[in-house]
Design a binder for these strands. Structure first.
Lengths: 365, 365
DNA sequence: ACCAAGCATTTGAACGATCAAACTGTGCAG
DNA sequence: CTGCACAGTTTGATCGTTCAAATGCTTGGT
């Protein structure tokens, strides 16, 4: 393999010194325009590329963000994080940042990786995707002054036990609220809800959005409301089972809002199985499946999430970690609003029943 | 931020020299056991981590693999590459390798990134995921002696115009052949085929597997065979439309084998729409959706693909690029065999029709 | 005419590791 | 007793870059 050109080589050709070449690349403002042209020509001529590792060794910055890739993509909804990863990679590239993936079996092991990556100047910051209550990882990162953002806010935002850290999240309350209102706009008078039973903030929040809309517009509360909701694990079969239960109750719902597309798909199947093809069903996350089967769903603005995460870490435009990140005074949160994507699954009530409930939406893509 | 310990610090504490510390980490064999213990203790005591960038600067190796993340995950099947990425990241981690993601809009831009990443010692090798006929990227990589593997073999394996490079692929012929045989085992006498119209090797291969099985076991050939196949773009609506056409023909198929789960899902819908719920349908790629709706599908052994890719690059176990990679004599290809995952969509013929064709498979996961 | 201030550029040192060569000490054959 | 081989360790140089301080050259105020 041939010897690569270095700053020294460029400097010789351009008739200047190393440092001037360095300045052309890093502090263009302080270089005389004429010199600049000469150096740039030399760079071009030699096909010079700075040696990233040498730079990192000296500056202790890497222009790289560490992201842990979760072991398995769990079913249909697992792709959400993959989609986020795509968005993050693209947005990062726009700022000259790159993404370094790694894996870890346990939080402790992950912290070990944090340390290795940070100490080796491999990454400047981390983006965490699935945090949980009293997460030891966020605690460690805060304690060691390692810049990071989480996608998903900590369990208790105003919980005194949890220290404050930067996060970006999508407003789950708004999402299920919109979904519920959409169902009501379509004529529903009793909107059912299929949610998660894992006790996470996400689960509570999404349920609350549904409950709020049901209370405000349908006057439902207390037990009247509670009997319309079921909480299960995520999954198509679980959704199917739960929806079947709801629909078999004495006062069944006339629309169902779900906390995931998997649950929603199960619910659609259950409805169809009971001959209730026209039952409006709304999912969550707007996965490719939802688009494929014509399921209305709540879309999370992942691109905006990625953009916001980077802004919290690096400021509006830069690619070096912003100093203000750890000052608690600044707004280090971003709560984004999701949007409803209406498809056939909620138009059936007003449209002639086409015979097959899961017909694809031909107008998309 | 506190000053991190260096080899020098460790050496002082252990009462040895820099190089001995370095040897403990990189060539443990040549260090006297007693010294070793002392140095290891010092490392532990100080919490020393080698500085990755300094090492890279010196050795010109990074223990990192570059992967381009495709701009958008295209629909249901797009997740295939994401799943591969997961597998690759995990397998790589086992060898102490990491994955660096990057994006590029055009092949030219991507080559530019190759150069930058290689010259900066950011990555040791690349893994390419979607190669195409006369791909300028593989040409550049070969020309510049940059180690790489592709997932997917070049269009013409024995095409003289294409130079040889290492690749891993999954045998598409075998996949659709298994699918077709499975349908025939289930009683089908005329197996339809929905494929891609993009003229790729993949498309041709998968069609050939179906054609071969149909010829051997059903005695179909020539026009009799051709009228059972349709080629379209990938997508649920396209599958729906194509299957509708096939089923409306004078001599319709009694089972359908598809080149993707998207097409298969569309086919299932079309069948159901025509009241032919029991029509066996088989998809390809075994996406989460297939599992969710009980669609039989061909599963690609992505974990094995990842493992094989790494073996081709780094040898059986190592983490430094194997020298033999570019010697044309070695077996630098791996053709893996996919497996069929049978689900409800191909059991309906023998089982009582449950009324709803897309019922989830409750026994999974 | 002089010195202070400023701009553009250069120089020496440093970042933390590994390589290559030099150095020790021990055992053993001649 | 000398010399050679060899295992184990140390030393000096080096990778390519940027930092911090120094240099040379203008400019302008008094």
């Amino acid at each position: 393999m041939r010897q690569l050109p270095t700053v020294e080589d460029v400097a010789r050709i351009a008739g200047v010194s190393r440092q001037t070449v360095s300045n052309v690349l890093n502090s263009p403002a302080i270089v005389k325009p004429e010199t600049m042209t000469r150096v740039k020509a030399a760079i071009e001529q030699l096909g010079y590329r700075p040696h990233a590792s040498a730079r990192r060794l000296r500056t202790r910055k890497s222009s790289t963000i560490g992201v842990r890739l979760d072991p398995m993509s769990n079913g249909i909804s697992g792709s959400l994080l993959d989609r986020f990863l795509h968005a993050l990679t693209e947005r990062a590239a726009e700022r000259g940042l790159r993404i370094l993936l790694f894996t870890a079996r346990t939080p402790e092991h992950e912290i070990e990786e944090f340390r290795r990556l940070r100490d080796g100047s491999d990454v400047d910051a981390f983006v965490l995707t699935s945090t949980f209550r009293q997460d030891p990882r966020t605690a460690w990162l805060l304690e060691n002054d390692v810049p990071f953002v989480t996608f998903g806010r900590p369990s208790g935002d105003d919980d005194l036990g949890e220290p404050i850290h930067p996060w970006v999240d999508v407003d789950g309350f708004s999402g299920s609220n919109q979904a519920t209102n959409h169902a009501i706009d379509g004529g529903a008078t009793r909107v059912g809800y299929l949610g998660f039973d894992d006790g996470t903030t996400t689960a509570l929040e999404r349920r609350a959005g549904w409950a709020s809309a049901s209370a405000e517009r349908l006057g439902l509360a207390g037990r009247d409301l509670a009997i319309l909701a079921l909480a299960t694990e995520d999954g198509v079969p679980q959704g199917n089972a739960a929806a079947t239960t709801l629909l078999a109750s004495p006062a069944p719902p006339d629309a169902i809002v779900c906390a995931s597309d998997s649950l929603a798909l199960g619910a659609m199947m259950a409805a169809a199985g009971l001959g209730r093809n026209a039952l409006p069903v709304i999912g969550y996350d707007n996965t490719p499946v939802a688009a494929a089967v014509g399921l209305s769903s709540i879309d999370q603005p992942l691109d905006l999430v990625a953009q916001s995460a980077l802004e919290l870490l690096f400021g509006e435009t830069g690619s070096t970690v912003a100093a203000h990140v750890h000052s608690a005074a600044d707004p280090i949160h971003r709560l984004l609003t999701p949007t409803l994507v209406a498809r056939r699954s909620t138009e059936l009530a007003s449209v002639e029943n086409s015979g097959f409930p899961l017909a694809g939406n031909h107008h998309e893509r």
